[in-house]
Design a binder for these strands. Structure first.
Lengths: 121, 121, 121, 121
DNA sequence: GTGGTCTAGACCACG
DNA sequence: GTGGTCTAGACCACG
């Protein structure tokens, strides 16, 4: 599991970390129960401040994706609670992306194929 | 074409305006060549700063969605240049949304149906 | 609305701020739509760092109690979404407090009276 | 008397143990004079460090809930001294919980019923 | 002027 | 050794 920061992006670093870990959990590159790098290790590896990594972990914890304890560090939760739907914010964002894709000349089928590919097997 | 600002969202107001106009163009509620309200009128109607509306229009112009001239104000472009694909930023964002939806328990079919619905007829 | 920090408490400062604002909203000393002090003003007044206040506000925002925007600062939300029940964490904590009160010789009626008083008119 | 650790909770393990023993004493599942498992046994059974259990026992002893002697290990005290009231810390915490419950839409009666249920017969 | 982000550096309790 | 908290100080985009 390699985390890459896009320095040109407007997305804050801690959010990028959070997003990549969520994607890692979703696509299976981070297994349930798997240990995440420690806050310090990840900060050192990425050349950023520990506070920034900590912020990412705290958000992941609050969202129910990971758990932390002082003995074992951070681990992917065994059972992630399913919210049961797409959040309103994500729906709005999805709608925007679909609109832009459509105006860019992306066909319905191309878009569905891409989403299917991202969803995975 | 009514523009609604979500006060709870972290997305800046000028971006929300820009996004809703793009979505309006995509779903046909804003026709090619159609005139947009003046910066001043829209700002007044929404109770926001003219700078904010202006920023949205400038971005839309830069992206090729609208054109402005001194006589007629801002209008939707007749022919929007098709970029031919989804931008890298939107791909990253789409991947994130798909991952979160998947972890929330949304099935592949539900997601594809939603995307299809947003894409429209 | 005066916020007082208990320096002896184990509860982190940002949590104490968050708790007192929630209690203020609940008992009406903070009205819906009312403006909160700016992050800087509150930090200065309390003699603490802006980051600490910011953390409190961000948690309140995430929990749906307040909203922030760059023009108006932070304000109490007009309509706070009702979760519809007591959280599991609060239930556990409530159970603990009731147990300790009982062992301290507090009668059922005394406890109910106190809870009723806190609940307010 | 089974002690369960909530891994998701921010409450330290030693505190969780302490809390559950207090609740056990309060609801009668631990009788006055009843023997507690040894530090070693409980630590082994729960798969945690003996230091952690020891810390919980020390606090319970200091608070007057249990007594220890070298021969018999730890036992629930026969007569727990009644403090005669709710501690300031617990009052603050209770107020917070009541406020949050109220804002979550929990009615006065529902809350009183819950407290009554926790208080027991 | 506002909240949001980030750093460098420190200290703390838990285990 | 771990995550969590806090400070002092800086810079940024939004409006």
């Amino acid at each position: 599991m390699i985390i890459r920061i896009n320095e040109l992006s407007d997305v804050p670093i801690y959010q990028q970390i959070r997003n990549q870990i969520v994607m890692g959990i979703s696509d299976g590159s981070l297994a349930p129960g798997e240990q995440l790098p420690t806050v310090r290790a990840l900060a050192l590896e990425m050349g950023i401040n520990t506070m920034t990594v900590s912020k990412a972990y705290q958000q992941l914890k609050m969202e129910g994706y990971i758990m932390t304890d002082r003995k074992n560090g951070a681990r992917v939760r065994m059972e992630i609670e399913k919210a049961g739907g797409i959040s309103e914010l994500n729906k709005t964002e999805l709608k925007r992306i679909v609109s832009e894709a459509r105006l860019s000349g992306v066909s319905r089928q191309e878009l569905l194929d891409l989403v299917g590919e991202y969803y995975g097997g």
